[in-house]
């Protein structure tokens, strides 16, 4: 990832290449636009939500080169050359849900679901790095995401359901972000 060095006057754009959910996109983005705004407005993927825009609530969490990242704390131009996965990139091409989505469905994890995209991304990263976390590890792994509705138990249940689903799935947790 490289930072564009040129300063640009207001309204001017910089060209970036970014892979989003498996598709390579060439975009002209305003240098000051956040990655979240680029995703939501320039690419029209509105599944990534903005809850606080200062990096605490985690609703805008995406996978950037595989790592959960706050899309509100990055500029779009910083994603030049990166691989981005959003909630829209999780389901398989045939429409079946990713095991983490399926598990959250089974566990009735969410209520208003505004926080959902962030929790899905954090869960995927957590289970990729630690396929069988303890309850404490799950709670710690999700502690960068705020939910105001559920009291978290149903989300923890969802992660535990996902662990079982993934263990019974020969493909494991990957891949996410196949081209659509």
């Amino acid at each position: 990832m490289s930072l564009p060095s040129a300063t640009t006057p207001a309204g001017e754009t910089l060209a970036i290449n970014v892979t989003v959910n498996g598709t390579l996109l060439s975009l002209n983005v305003e240098p000051r636009h956040s990655l979240a705004d680029v995703i939501r407005e320039d690419i029209s993927l509105t599944g990534t939500h903005l809850g606080c825009e200062h990096g605490v609530c985690g609703a805008c969490t995406i996978l950037l080169d595989g790592e959960p990242s706050r899309a509100c704390l990055m500029l779009g131009v910083q994603a030049d050359g990166a691989d981005v996965v959003t909630i829209e990139g999780l389901a398989n091409n045939d429409g079946t849900m990713h095991p983490v989505q399926q598990a959250m469905y089974e566990a009735m994890s969410f209520q208003c679901a505004f926080c959902t995209p962030g929790f899905l991304m954090s869960t995927i990263a957590l289970l990729r790095d630690n396929p069988s976390p303890s309850e404490v590890e799950i709670r710690e792994g999700l502690s960068g995401n705020l939910c105001r509705c559920t009291g978290y138990q149903s989300i923890v249940d969802g992660v535990e359901t996902a662990i079982r689903l993934i263990a019974s799935n020969s493909a494991g947790i990957d891949p996410v972000g196949e081209p659509t």
Partner: peptide, 23 residues
């Protein structure tokens, strides 16, 4: 019954329609 949520069919795949999504 503990019937699964109909709402999740759109929320979990990022297809909810919140007011900021209208744009």
């Amino acid at each position: 019954q503990r019937v699964k949520r109909v709402e999740d069919e759109r929320f979990l795949i990022g297809e909810g329609q919140f007011v900021a999504d209208l744009n």
